[in-house]
Design a protein around this nucleic acid. Structure first.
Length: 767
DNA sequence: CAATTCGGGATCTGC
DNA sequence: TCCCGAATTG
């Protein structure tokens, strides 16, 4: 090798490997045997994978299109692609996809060998349930979703209706036959459900050695991220994709397994070395993200779990402030508390984008949205389903899906029932019967619902006109699409979609129905059309657009265009934060029953705890935890107790604000006394002390002190009239302290309040 | 077949 | 509290 090349190599090495620690470097440059990277939270996992992709391309001469990198979320896939491409532009040609989108692409190409035509669309949970309902199973509307879930679970375990192992999963003898009916109906529709996106590729690969060889030739490297969240079907798929020459590398963390509700099996990661013989393990235990204070809290919590591989995370990050635990009254106060924190930090120069507010359920986002709008804090809600879930958007998508696949019965009947006047259950049943008859006559895929509907038009009275108008407008759209496909107009899909919505009458349908009600529904269909500007006006374009929308809800959301650019607080579910990090994190709703939910025990409870661990380890600099004493559930106000996870915190490792219930104060007191005792008896405990500079919080306090004085009469919406009986500061340190007032209510109870955060919930009646 | 009423259940988490 | 499905009625 020439000197020049040696030098060039050296520079490349330095560029790619220079900033890695020894373990990371080993992981990146590892070759040969299968590799499991056990990567603790914040240990630079994504950096390792992306560097590995760049490394393989530039140093090992692997062509990017021969690299398959699989993730679990679209967000992670996007992140991986952009970071790998930043390291090596060629990485943009690598196949970086979620398991499901990989499966979808595979089925477009190879689905024919399982009798699936390429113009399928993907049924979401609701569509699948609707199909199950239509499949003459005799299930009530009430039972259907539960049975659908079981079917989905079976597919997650790679079990078809005729698999004898199904009985192990569910002893109900009827289940297999319901499952069979559903499957037959689904195949007839020409569509697939989410489970099929994994299950069918496995089946095809098992039954078609030729296809399998193709795939093995195509992918010489397979990387899997978040391996702890893979389910059995995904594991089986992986086994089929990995050929004798394939280099396999999976990355995961058993402590962050949070998707068992959707079939994830931690056992996949625990038994990796058995399933892929000769596999090596590399552990990444150095955390680059969080302060030692945050890491301590996170580790203490997760250490309450059994059944871990066990890792010892350490960090060299500089010390920071103790995580703060705030006991608040209601979710409104909780939202206000967050707003205060964020606003105060903003005034000190910390941008909004530093912040993430985490919650267990999407429904919780509302109080934060309301409050943030009020206090003019810009925010973005991640993973909210709002846009996609809107009735009119679903209906519009059904229409587009139906244009793409005319055997989609769920879409067709949904459209008829909702938009065509005079058509109800009876007419739909007639059309279905006619469809069956035609299928019996002609057989195969040649029959569609349009012809079936047309055939019965003569048998109808008034509804017939509407129905035939609907059918011909759909036919018009279809021929328009076909014409465009032949001409290759170069236009984008957006115009076509507006046209379809117009012609079908869907746009007018909502316009008319919503006169005076602020016609937002008609508007969101325009938004849907706008979302399609990046897709070409062709059959392929429509197919891609529909697939993208089914598999990536964010893609259909209406606020994505501004998401990256501007300075906003992130509102996000705990599940969605996987793989993300923020300087400042608030984990909200830490109440028993909400987080963890009260029906969780055993392994499910441990998973909740892991979720808590994931949440804590997202934080780089500051971590806040909030717990409310009352919460509105199903509209009524419910009293709550602090989450059990709060009792797993190290009391000397956190700072408590607000008014903790007595049980929690007792817990802290005990723990601290125990610790003191232990220290006294000679154990070497490291005293955790903090000295902070005296800065001007007093100025802020002086107003409060003057306003909220002893003897003042106040009124509270929930507790009624009361009188302030005591005032004090929560600690000695003026900067860290909060001004607290004790209120004695007429109703008998005593409550502590922090006027700084909760002033608005109290009204001063008389000084 | 559409409109109205009534009652029960819900909200996890996501591809 | 609110939404959806089933039942009731015109």
């Amino acid at each position: 090798m020439s000197d020049f090349n040696t030098i060039k190599d050296g520079i490349e090495d330095e560029f790619l490997l220079g900033n890695l620690n020894e373990e990371q470097r080993r992981a990146v440059t590892h070759e040969g045997s299968p590799l499991l990277i056990l990567a603790g939270a914040g240990s630079g996992k994504t950096r390792v994978i992306t560097t590995k992709i760049a490394w393989l391309i530039s140093k090992k001469g692997i062509r990017p299109e021969n690299i398959l990198a699989v993730t679990f979320t679209n967000k992670a896939a996007r992140e991986m692609r952009s970071r790998a491409t930043a390291l090596n532009p060629e990485a943009s040609w690598a196949v970086i996809k979620t398991f499901h989108s990989f499966g979808a692409k595979f089925l477009r190409q190879y689905g024919f060998s399982a009798g699936l035509s390429p113009n399928y669309t993907i049924y979401d949970d609701d569509d699948s349930a609707a199909l199950l309902r239509q499949a003459e199973t005799g299930l009530s509307a009430f039972q259907t979703p539960a049975v659908m879930q079981k079917i989905d679970r079976a597919k997650n375990y790679c079990l078809e209706y005729d698999n004898p192992d199904l009985a192990l999963m569910d002893p109900d003898p009827d289940f297999a036959s319901v499952f069979r009916k559903y499957t037959e109906r689904l195949r007839k529709s020409g569509n697939v459900d989410f489970g099929d996106l994994i299950y069918l590729p496995v089946k095809i690969l098992r039954e078609n050695p030729g296809i399998k060889e193709d795939i093995h030739r195509q992918f010489s490297v397979i990387l899997v991220d978040e391996y702890q969240d893979s389910n059995i079907a995904q594991f089986e798929l992986l086994k089929e994709l990995v050929g004798p020459e394939t280099y396999l590398c999976v990355v995961g963390d058993d402590d962050q397994s949070i998707y068992s509700f959707r079939g994830a099996e931690v056992s996949n990661i625990l038994t990796f070395t058995e399933n892929f013989p000769g596999a090596e393990i590399i552990r990444l235990e150095k955390n680059y993200r969080s302060t030692p204070e945050i890491l301590r809290v996170a580790s203490e919590i997760v250490s309450n779990n059994d059944g871990r591989l066990g890792k010892t995370l350490y960090t060299e990050c500089p010390s920071g402030k103790k995580p703060v635990l705030a006991f608040l009254t209601s979710q409104e106060v909780e939202a206000e508390f967050c707003a205060q924190l964020i606003q105060q930090a903003f005034e000190k120069g910390h941008p909004y984008r530093d912040w993430a507010v985490l919650y267990r359920t999407n429904a919780q986002s509302m109080s934060f949205e309301t409050e943030f709008i009020k206090s003019k804090i810009p925010y973005t809600v991640i993973g909210s389903l709002k846009f996609y879930e809107r009735e009119e958007v679903k209906l519009a998508l059904s229409l587009l899906s139906f244009i793409f696949n005319r055997r989609d019965e769920v879409a067709f009947f949904k459209l008829l029932r909702k938009t065509v006047a005079g058509v109800g259950a009876t007419t739909c049943a007639k059309i279905q019967m006619e469809f069956e008859r035609l299928t019996g006559e002609a057989g195969g895929d040649s029959v569609d619902y349009l012809s079936a509907a047309e055939n019965i038009v003569p048998k109808l009275k008034k509804a017939g006109e509407n129905l035939s108008a609907f059918v011909s407008s759909v036919r018009e759209c279809i021929s328009e699409l076909k014409a465009a496909a032949e001409k290759e107009t170069g236009e984008n899909l957006s115009g076509f979609i507006s046209g379809v919505l117009e012609k079908s009458g869907l746009q007018d349908f909502y316009k008319n129905r919503e006169e005076g009600t602020g016609a937002s529904r008609a508007l969101s269909m325009t938004e849907l059309a706008n979302a399609a500007v990046f897709y070409p006006f062709s059959i392929q374009g429509l197919s891609d657009f529909l697939e993208q929308i089914r598999l990536d809800r964010e893609a259909a959301s209406d606020n994505r265009e501004t998401e990256e650019i501007s300075d906003r607080v992130t509102l996000i579910t705990l599940h969605n934060t996987k793989g993300l990090e923020f300087k400042r994190v608030v984990i909200t709703g830490l109440e028993e029953g909400l987080f963890p939910r009260d029906d969780k025990t055993g392994e499910a409870l441990e998973e909740e705890r892991r979720l808590m661990y994931v949440g804590c380890t997202r934080a780089m600099k500051r971590l806040y935890l909030t717990s409310c004493s009352v919460r509105r559930i199903y509209g009524s106000i419910q009293p709550g107790r602090p989450s059990r996870f709060l009792y797993e915190l190290p009391p000397d490792g956190i700072k408590v604000l607000g008014s903790p219930p007595s049980s929690f104060s007792a817990f802290c007191k005990n723990a601290i006394e125990e610790k003191a005792l232990a220290e006294k008896s000679g154990r070497t405990g490291v005293p955790l002390e903090e000295k902070s500079a005296v800065t001007g919080k007093e100025g802020l306090h002086s107003d409060l002190v003057l306003k909220w004085k002893k003897g003042v009469t106040v009124f509270h919406d929930d507790y009624g009239y009361g009188i302030i009986t005591k005032t004090y500061f929560s600690g000695d340190d003026p900067d860290e302290s909060e001004y607290v007032i004790l209120v004695h209510f007429e109703s008998g109870g005593e409550k502590k309040f922090m006027p700084e955060y909760q002033g608005h919930t109290l009204m001063i009646v008389k000084d």
